[in-house]
């Protein structure tokens, strides 16, 4: 069972409704993740990264969103067909999440130790003493002294709070961890500490992870494969070597070119002109075509198919492999 597929998303489409307009946040997304793999889900604000993650945990806002199509297969079962009760058992035990903002994702009136205990007690029947010792052990795993068990979140710094978030997420030894911009709110030296910790824990527990981020630097530090999202679709997907060494989609190219390179002499940054499209009024054909420097008439006609340029390297562009 080594490296078996843990999660497979097939043709997922999710829309939000706002003032009677349909906002297509995720459109026909396919994704698979194996045990021990860390997948970086990269894109700009509004690309659909977080919506994808919330769909997997089924914590989308019920009133304003709907899953239009697709399957999310987790251990042979389609998550989208499970009852609320079954879903509650999966959340936290099998699939856990680390949220972006450690300042708001912890309960301010509960001690951090109790917050870790709460997760464990939901999914096991430990007695009080065992609960406490397991929660204390988790604090130590993430590098917090266990004598801080009875402290409240406001007594911790941002980096320490994010460590608590990680401790909660890992406390039931989940098979899949979804980390939504886990270091975005942190300073760089603290970010380096947290990434280092996540790398160690990943190796130790062999947890599969989806890392949502807009930072290609963070992806290079921690991921083994990458999916680049644009306007609700994955436009390029491959191993980290394929994406960093040989990216082919014009949007991926634009993303890399936008980042100032600290190892090279400065020059004017190459920019992608314009803005991402309005998700309630998407352009016809390829949604990147209005901004694409290589666009041809054909690009505006129909949405490009996924092209497999190498085993495991998929590009949604008619030019893929032809440039």
């Amino acid at each position: 069972m080594e490296n078996s597929t843990i999660l497979e998303i097939k043709d997922l489409s999710v829309s939000y409704t706002s003032s009677n307009k349909e906002i297509k946040a995720v459109r026909g997304l396919d994704l698979a993740i194996r045990q021990g793999e860390t997948l970086g889900l990269v894109g700009e604000t509004g690309a659909g990264k977080t919506t994808t993650a919330l769909s997997v945990l089924r914590i989308l806002p019920e009133v304003s969103s709907s899953i239009k199509s697709g399957e999310i297969m987790f251990e042979g079962r389609d998550i989208l067909t499970l009852s609320r009760k079954e879903m509650r058992e999966i959340r936290g035990r099998d699939i856990a999440m680390i949220f972006q903002d450690p300042m708001t994702s912890l309960d301010p009136v509960m001690t951090v130790g109790r917050q870790i205990e709460e997760m464990i007690s939901l999914h096991t029947d430990c007695d009080k003493k065992e609960l406490r010792s397991r929660a204390e052990a988790m604090l130590e795993v993430v590098g917090i002294r266990k004598d801080r068990f009875d402290d409240y979140p406001h007594q911790f710094s941002g980096g320490m709070k994010q460590r608590v978030g990680i401790a909660i997420a890992l406390s039931c030894n989940p098979k899949l961890l979804i980390a939504d911009e886990p270091t975005t709110a942190l300073d760089v030296t603290i970010q380096a500490q947290v990434l280092n910790l996540m790398n160690q824990l990943k190796e130790k527990y062999r947890t599969a992870m989806i890392l949502i981020t807009h930072d290609l630097g963070v992806v290079a530090e921690i991921c083994s494969s990458v999916a680049i999202m644009y306007a609700g679709q994955i436009v390029e997907y491959g191993s980290i070597e394929q994406i960093y060494g040989n990216h082919m989609h014009p949007y991926t190219e634009g993303l890399f070119d936008s980042i100032p390179d600290i190892e090279e002499e400065k020059s004017e940054l190459k920019v992608i002109d314009g803005l991402p499209p309005d998700p309630s009024a998407l352009p016809a054909g390829c949604s990147f075509s209005p901004r694409c420097p290589y666009a041809t008439d054909r690009c505006g006609e129909s949405c490009p198919d996924d092209v497999q340029v190498e085993p495991g390297h998929i590009v949604k562009c008619i030019l893929a492999g032809k440039k």
Binding site: S157, G159, M160, D187, V188, T189, I190, Q191, A192, Q193, L195, N196, D215, L216, G217, V218, V219, A220, E221, I240, E241, Y244, G245, F256, I259, I262, E263
Partner: peptide, 25 residues
């Protein structure tokens, strides 16, 4: 030195001295 070493760089297989600071400001 620590600040520079902490910047995540979008490239693979770079050899860098990793100076990770402990503790907070």
């Amino acid at each position: 030195k620590a600040l520079l070493a902490s910047i995540p760089i979008p490239k693979l297989n770079r050899k860098r001295d990793k100076l990770i600071l402990s503790g907070d400001v």
